[in-house]
Design a protein around this nucleic acid. Structure first.
Lengths: 136, 136
DNA sequence: TTAGCTGCAAACCCTTTGCTGCGTA
DNA sequence: TACGCAGCAAAGGGTTTGCAGCTAA
C-alpha cells in the first residue's frame, strides 16, 4: 500500500521515484532530527546511488508540501522531522545535543496574546529551550 | 572617557584598535538588528579601510565577551545587537522584516517550569514570534 | 620592542543549480 | 512518448582563516 508520503506525491502530480521513496521512508523512520548529511547516509544504506543533491531537493519538496518540518537548532545546518498532528517545541540538552519534544498550551496561548497586544496576528513561532540535566 | 566596550577590552587585555572602536560604536548606535554586511557598510562610513574580515572577527570577539548578542532569524545570516540589561525576545513582522522586542515574565516562568518538569535546568532559550500586522 | 591585530584572498561549509541523460506515468 | 527527475560538478552565500605587514601597549 502507498505510504502517506506516496499518496501526497500522487496527489500533487509528482513522480514517485525510488529515491523519493527511500528518502521519505528514511525520514519517516527517524526518531531523531537528522540533518541532510545524516539522511543521506541512512538513505545510502538502502541505495548507494542516491546523491546528496537529490536529498536536498527531496527534503525541500517534502517541506514545501508540509509533509516534513525543517528546524534550525543553531548549528548552521537544517534538521528535519516528519510533521506530526500535534505541534511541539524542542528542548535541547546542551551537554549531548539530545532533543526532547514538548508542548505547553499555556505558552502557546501567551504567545498569541503577546502578538495581539503588539498589534499583530501570530502566524508561527520558534521556541527552543537550551538546558542541562538536573542531575546525572 | 572610555566607552563600555573599551573598558571591557582593556579588562580582557585586548588591544583597542581604531577598527574595534568604530565597529563597537556602530553596533552600539544601531537601533535595529544589523547583520555583518550592514555593520560593515555603516562602519565603512567612518573608516573606509575596515575590512569585512575584521568585522567578522570583532563581532565574534564581542559576542564571546558577552557585550553583544547574536541572533538568527532564519534568513541564513547572523544579526547582532548590544546586550541589554533586560532580557527580551523578538517578534518578526514577516511582511517587512521589522523586528519588535518584547518581554513576557509569564512565558519566561513557564519555560523554566517546562524544563524542570522534563528533568532539566534551563540555561537559555530562543523565542521568536512570526506575525503579520492586524490591520494596515 | 613585540604580541596581537588587520587586510587580503583563498578556503570552508552548507545548499542550490545548470546540464545531460534517464525513468515514471 | 514526454515531461519530470537524478547525478554530477560547479557555483553561491555566509563565514573563517593563513599569511605577511602593521600597530597599540
Amino acid at each position: 500500500m502507498a505510504s502517506r508520503i506516496e499518496s501526497l506525491c500522487i496527489e500533487k502530480g509528482l513522480k514517485m521515484t525510488g529515491q523519493r521513496r527511500i528518502i521519505a521512508s528514511t525520514i519517516s523512520e527517524a526518531e531523531d532530527h537528522p540533518d541532510v548529511e545524516e539522511i543521506y547516509k541512512r538513505a545510502a544504506k538502502n541505495d548507494a546511488n542516491i546523491s546528496i543533491a537529490t536529498v536536498y531537493r527531496t527534503v525541500r519538496m517534502l517541506e514545501e508540501a508540509g509533509i516534513i518540518e525543517k528546524h534550525d537548532f543553531g548549528d548552521g545546518k537544517a534538521r528535519y522531522e516528519e510533521s506530526s498532528e500535534e505541534h511541539h517545541d524542542h528542548l535541547i540538552n546542551i551537554k549531548n545535543g539530545q532533543i526532547i519534544e514538548f508542548h505547553n498550551d499555556e505558552i502557546e496561548r501567551l504567545q498569541e496574546e503577546v502578538a495581539k497586544k503588539l498589534g499583530y496576528k501570530l502566524i508561527g513561532h520558534r521556541l527552543e529551550l537550551y538546558a542541562v540535566p538536573l542531575k546525572e
